[in-house]
């Protein structure tokens, strides 16, 4: 179930980044025209997808802590808190999802030819 959720989340990030690439085609063309290398464009979009997934990770961890506290209190009348290492691992995993699913849109963006990208509306 968790793997499916991660996959769906990752595909969501990839879709958002692909839309972003399409919307910012002209910007990519400008940057390439003024000297940006492919790695610069890849880096820019990877950072964006990683920040996006990292934010999702932080929100998910906060919800996880809140859920543990509430459900622990309601069901067991105990204060239940996930281990810090689990939260850290979840956060790192969310970043990895961002990198993994952001890679294709980033490579696609970097592969645009400046002359074509500059013609985009």
């Amino acid at each position: 179930m968790a793997a499916i959720a991660l996959l769906v989340g990752g595909i969501g990030i990839m879709n958002i980044m692909l839309v972003t690439v399409t919307e910012r085609t002209r910007e990519i063309g400008i940057k390439k025209a003024i000297g940006a290398q492919r790695r610069v464009i890849i880096g820019q979009f990877l950072v964006e997808s990683t920040v996006l997934s990292g934010c999702g990770g932080v929100i998910g961890i906060l919800i996880g802590y809140a859920g543990s506290l509430i459900l622990g209190k309601l069901i067991y009348d105990l204060i239940l808190m996930p281990e810090v290492w689990m939260a850290a691992a979840a956060f790192l995993f969310s970043l990895a999802i961002g990198v993994g699913f952001g890679l294709y849109p980033a490579v696609k963006a970097s592969g645009l030819q400046p002359v074509d990208a500059l013609r985009a509306d």
């Binding site: 940057k31 025209a33 000297g35």
Partner: peptide, 18 residues
């Protein structure tokens, strides 16, 4: 890209600012 960066600057009709 390296050559553009070092040798050429562009001014476009549509300005092309970010």
């Amino acid at each position: 890209a390296e050559i553009r960066s070092r040798k050429i600057s562009f001014i476009f009709q549509g300005y092309n600012l970010i």
